[in-house]
Each structure stands twice: as C-alpha cells, then as structure tokens.
C-alpha cells in the first residue's frame, strides 16, 4: 500500500533544491525534482505528485505557465500547487493566484513556514 505523499520540487536553482529536498524527505515525503517547466510536466504525467513546489522564475516555460498547464489536466484534479516567487512583478499576479495555485510564498521564506504550508495543503488533499 502506498501512503507517502509525493512532492515535486520544480526549480532550476540546485542550491535551494538540495535543501528543500532534504527537508521534505526529513518530514517523510517522497520527493521528485524537475529543473524546468517541461521536465515538471513530464514528471507530473509519469508519476502524479500530491503537491508541487513550483518556482515562478524558470528557464523556458515559467512557473505561471506550468501551473496553468497542470491545471488543465483532469487526472491531476486533486493536485496542490505552492508557488515560490521573488516578488517584484510577480507579486500581484501571484497574489491573485490567477493561474490556479493554492498558495504562494515569497523569497526569502523561512523553510519552517514552507514545511507548515506543505503540511497544511496536503492535509486537505485526499489520496
């Protein structure tokens, strides 16, 4: 029986991926990594995650576009999406969560807050 929650981290910054992957695994999540938007869409199709931690600033497809495309997929209906933003011009768009994200965090965030947000988002999602 599969019970571990799967989290997909989408970020092209290896330094933050390393830390987030460690912290999420410490919390007992199964973690997958994608370094750009195309890789994220492929990873989500191959093994649907329960939650995606999605950076807005990505090479190629940006996080907003990845979010929109994930939301178009019927098989990912229960997916939770947490956007990571460096604010600036993202701020109003993200605040409106126009692309269908469930929550966002602005960099530099506290990883404790991020872990709490992940846990809260997954609490409400069914298997």
């Amino acid at each position: 029986m599969e019970s571990r929650r799967r989290v997909l981290i989408v970020d092209d910054e290896p330094n933050i991926v390393l830390s987030l992957e460690f912290l999420l695994r410490q919390q007992g999540y199964e973690v997958a990594i994608a370094r750009d938007g195309e890789e994220a869409l492929a990873a989500a199709a191959a093994r649907p995650p329960h939650l995606v931690v999605l950076d807005v600033m990505l090479p190629g497809l940006d996080g907003f576009e990845v979010c929109r495309r994930l939301r178009e997929r019927a098989e990912l209906a229960g997916l939770k999406i947490l956007l990571l933003t460096a604010r600036g011009r993202d701020v109003d768009r993200v605040r409106g969560l126009e692309e269908g994200a469930d929550a966002y965090m602005s960099k530099p965030f506290s990883t404790r807050e991020l872990m709490t947000a992940v846990a809260e988002l997954l609490e409400g999602s069914g298997e």
Partner: peptide, 10 residues
C-alpha cells in the same frame, strides 16, 4: 531574494 532564500534554506 533568490540567493538569500538558498542561503536560508541551507
């Protein structure tokens, strides 16, 4: 912001 997020998470 990005660099500090990396530093803080690490």
């Amino acid at each position: 912001r990005g660099s500090l997020a990396n530093l803080r998470a690490a």
